[in-house]
Nucleic acid binder design. Structure first.
Lengths: 251, 251
DNA sequence: CGTATTGTTGAGCGTAGTCAAAGTTAGTGG
DNA sequence: CCACTAACTTTGACTACGCTCAACAATACG
């Protein structure tokens, strides 16, 4: 609404419109920038649930923008245990780092069915060099990614199981609120309890027990793939959640 | 040696020479790029041990390049517990993210005395826009940072105490090897056991016990601030360490 | 040389893990 | 549409890794 004047030259039905909208929301892109993004070669692709988008060790030549659905990144360690590194929602890149890194150091998988746009990494790198505002937007995306990783380090290293799970729920809710207009505290929550455990460094059994106490205490209602945050303020307190690491005002 | 032809236009005694050398080591910078870096406004500053370089919540207008010594980044959570997020060695930026993020989401502190170069963040941002190769180098620095954070997430989430500590030691040794020509398996290791615990999500008491078993098993020799890696291969096995996440060949 | 910091040890405890089984839900094919 | 199956969730009993608290020893430093 406020940004309407900026958007006169946006093509709403372009495949990359969600990306342009997200970047434009923090610092205005010039019309030339927008045209250059719209001119990127890209392909739409659909994935079923649990499909691998990127495999650890591979050398992808595309970057993947998530258009709809959810995806997660993870590493498998020697003994077969899995650690989830991040959860991604629509309009985010799931593997922007592969623009400059030669091989993928972790895998990316869908949660539920998802649609993506594949963009050749060479085209993105060239664009970042020729259009400084876009280069800056990609760099900032990387910085925001890293800020979330740092908070996860804290979550795993220094919070107990209940706080870890509450924190993760708060983070996802906050990020989804930022994307859509949100409102009623109800979210699509696509993680199984096993995946939630793999994201928080816990077993699925213990995750289950903690979720029961969060339910019993009237903080959340989570069943099937639907999450209801009943008492956001207390949940944030339990999870020691402070959204400043998300840098919502960053430009 | 191999890069000698590139380095004819490098000024070896410039304050930012370590930075130029590091960046030049992965992808050749043009003479114009090097001149632009050398023209950056910057100030040398010395810090004593345990000095705060950046405080969480502040809005710095400089970025800090570590010239000598060590520094670490950390967050303090509500109950006072500390989580160390990363350890930095000479020639690395300790807070490059503050170029684009408005406020620091964590603190940076020295280990031992350290010398730094302070560069106005506005100058770095401008340079990244006007010189694509430099913008790319900064973006890559951020990506490498993030890759290490991801590995730490795995370390904290899915490895037991012994593997966590072994892994951290392997990582630091590998990064120091990459910097200096290294060789004999002896390193300056500036962390106290309490700090080592804060980096691995453990208490100092348990860290102490684990270090004793690593010593007893003939893997390392760590006393005072001197680390000797006695059996690198077995240490890597114990720590489930694979250096591919460090992307040593990235350009 | 004295004091603060860092490292070491012991005893007891608690959070989270393991293993195994049963219950529930969702998805698939006849 | 229902039956069957696979995936996911829940429960219980037992275990263990790492924490807490407290005291003491060694080292570094002014």
């Amino acid at each position: 609404v406020i940004l309407a004047f900026r958007e006169t030259y946006l093509t709403e039905d372009h495949l990359l419109a969600p990306l342009i909208r997200r970047w434009n929301g923090r610092a205005a892109l010039s019309e030339e920038d927008v045209r250059a993004i719209e001119a990127l070669p890209c392909n739409r692709r659909s994935f079923p649930r649990n499909a691998y988008v990127v495999r650890e060790g591979s050398a992808p030549h595309n970057c993947t923008l998530l258009l709809s659905g959810f995806a997660y990144r993870h590493k498998i360690i020697r003994d077969g245990a899995r650690q989830i590194l991040s959860i991604h929602i629509a309009s985010e890149f799931v593997d922007l780092q592969n623009c400059l890194l030669g091989h993928a150091d972790h895998s990316v998988q869908t949660l539920g069915p998802a649609e993506v746009a594949l963009i050749p990494k060479a085209a993105l790198v060239a664009l970042s060099a020729s259009h400084p505002a876009i280069g800056r937007a990609m760099w900032l995306d990387t910085l925001l990614d890293a800020a979330i990783f740092r908070e996860w380090v804290v979550n795993l290293g220094r919070r107990d199981a209940k706080a870890r799970i509450a924190h993760l729920i708060c983070e996802l809710a906050a990020r989804m609120d930022a994307n859509g207009p949100a409102g009623d505290g109800t979210y699509h929550f696509p993680l199984t309890q096993e995946q939630l455990g793999d994201a928080t460094g816990l077993t699925s059994v213990h995750t289950n027990r903690i979720l029961q106490t969060l339910r019993r205490e009237g903080l959340i209602n989570l069943r099937s793939h639907s999450l209801e945050v009943l008492d956001p303020e207390r949940l944030r307190a339990v999870g020691d959640f402070n959204d400043s690491y998300l840098h919502r005002n960053a430009a």
